[in-house]
Nucleic acid binder design. Sequence first.
RNA 1: GCCGCUGUGGUGGAAUAGGCAGACACAAGGGACUUAAAAUCCCUCGGUCGAAUAGACCGUACCGGUUCAAGUCCGGUCAGCGGCACCA
Length: 801
Amino acid sequence: MSYDFLKIEKKWQDYWEENKTFECKNDYTKPKFYALVEFPYPSGQGLHIGHPRPYTALDIVARKRRMQGYNVLFPMGWDAFGLPTENYAIQNKIHPAKVTKDNVEHFKRQLKNIGLSFDWSREVNTTDPAYFKWTQWIFIQMFKKGLAYKKEMAVNWCTSCKVVLANEEVIGGECERCSGEVVRKVKSQWMLKITEYAERLINDLEEVDYADRIKASQINWIGRSTGAEVDFDTTIGYKLSVYTTRPDTLFGATYMVISPEHPLIDEYSDKLENADEIFKYREDAMKKSDFERTELNKGKTGVELKGINAINPVNNKEIPIYISDYVLMSYGTGAIMAVPAHDTRDYEFAKAFDLPIVEVVSGGDISEEAFIDCDTGIMVNSDFLNGLAVEQAKEKIIDWLKENKKGEPKVNYKLRDWVFSRQRYWGEPIPIVHCDKCGYVPLDEKDLPLELPDVDSYEPTDTGESPLATLESFINTTCPKCGGAAKRETDTMPQWAGSSWYFLRYTDPHNSEELASKEALKYWMQVDWYNGGMEHTTLHLLYSRFWHKFLYDIGVVEDKEPYARRTSHGFILGENGEKMSKSRGNVINPDDIIGEYGADTLRLYEMFIGDFEKTAPWSTASVKGCKRFLERVWGLQDILIDGETYREEIETSMHKTIKKVGEDVEVLKFNTAIAALMSLINDIYATKAINQAELRTFLLLLYPFAPHIAEEIYERSGFSGMADEQSWPEFDESKCTENTIEIAIQVNGRVRNRIVVAADIDKDNVIDLAKSDEKIAKEIAGKTVIKEIYVPGKLVNIVAK
RNA sequence: GCCGCUGUGGUGGAAUAGGCAGACACAAGGGACUUAAAAUCCCUCGGUCGAAUAGACCGUACCGGUUCAAGUCCGGUCAGCGGCACCA
């Protein structure tokens, strides 16, 4: 009987579906485990070979947890709003809902072919009105709390997608999705005040178990810095505030710079002697995209504000003010004090405009470059700060600023509010109307969901308006507050909206009264283990933490943080080590691999390919190794003998492997767990037999990794019940070590021989044995032994001179 | 520039908390079986010297240090990957 994987896999997949094997119990008395993988965007291309890697990993965890007695929630759904679907719909003149439905079906079939143990009864879809009703509901709650607001602002506009992008979606001046050119455009946009949560988003990372690299990049992205806001008087009476992280260098501030958008320019244009020149500079700067403005190695440009000077508060010296595009309106106050001696950019600007450079921290050579080092410098040319170290000077100057009412300590963040509107069709409609009398008014909650209307054309418009804006019947409505005529918001939400809370919906997906019941949320949350891509660290992961914290604040959820543990997988690259893509011609289709080698082989290979957290190149040749292993597993049936306890010659191997596999799964070392199973099967074949007790344990260890073959052999061997209902095997620590061990004997750190000794031998005995060994005796003859080291179970080192 | 990560055989990768480097695989070579091929099984497989499965030396990007002992710790250098980037 050969290993007919196609037949076996089909058989068990059908069985699991018919018997609803993986639907989790609504038994809230059992211990729970919530395993979560990021739900995919169901693109037209179908499943990518990268998808099964994280899915299989948590499938292994989920299956193991079920065997360990947990009530496991391992759900799956669809993050289905999005541009590719909309674009496909436009090109092919099919409704995006239909495209979505087809793609979902395709994805679902592919996922089922991998044998993942998802609870499909809890499937969610972000484009389902019954789902996005609650996305809209959350938005309205945010609006009511003042966290959603509309603002006229310069935004990132993708000229190709014809849509506004969040800062997070702009990569090196290009659109994250289509690589199209991104320019600045002033538009009125819905914004979410994520900045209000910046501090908590950093601080609460201490409460969760995320991989360090994930925490680090979130902290980096939020970009907290501490310093002071300092007020400078000007010769026209305007108070010019700046933010600085180096208030200690205040005596070195020899000029100031404001950003081109700074309100001072319009307010006091009549005082400017060179207003024309300044307005011209501003116009040029506004035309450029953020990327152009911040492009590397660009020389500093700017124009002096003639007719206005600033006054340095610490020494009352008059200093000039410049306008320059290296100062951004969106950070701090949009103005800076320039300390050229101790800031690289200011240094560069001062050199270009021949401005004075005054050293206030000694220790560098300011004739060569700005001196930045805060740790070693001593204050000079700074009156009452002279002689202090930088840190002391910071404290002292802040005290001085407070006393003299010239400034105060201040914390700043790089994080900006989240641009939340998109001018596209295929997204959640924003449930707000604009009434001339009442302003922006949210829909009544009983009128949710606000569904997408049917339109003839989903085409984006060059005017920057949503396709919905052309639909009079949709736009014109009545104000929920006053009943008067009002107009609907026509922008839709970004793709990140639906994924910001989907993990909550899984706990109670069919609830029509609430986003999920209190009991379900209380029982299932937090997510115990969430795995997803590194690329979502500063987008989805941060956004969903923000939403969850908001829901915590309004009493919907009980935990401050949604995810107790977050891990990240590496990408799978093409065989040539490059990113897989159609244009490179190195795409591997999971369906092909399953057809040729089977789902169990695919699962095993994706886990065996390398360190789970690192990228790994695909190798079809190596897939065969995993297939061979499963063939050998199948072959165990031919050498099966009777026996209800482990045979002596294999006992230690059995116990060691149970321990190793169990531990490795918990720390993402799936590759070495599989290696351990391979070693065990090699040991078993070396004995030319396997007994029933051994086979049963082996199958249970294999089951989470390769469930179809494990279940099949389990059944054929006549063991009771199903593999997935059995308890995870246990090991006996005392049986994990051999009775006798081989230890290495080193002389002066070099291995000279190996001897076999009893495992529990003591130091004196083993060293006597080592020294009496013929080779070792020869090595140390005529020398004085200085030191004798015994590392139990490993080696002896004799140091001799 | 800043933050994070990585550097080990022909390849993917192992190596608890400093203790025998190269587990487990892939590829390659040799052999068995076969009319033949595939599959399977057995053997070899870091380098140099060597007839050797005797033995010795070298070897975890590079230079140095700590230690009885370093892939692992410390200091420095180089290379690559990812992220951020005129953030004051």
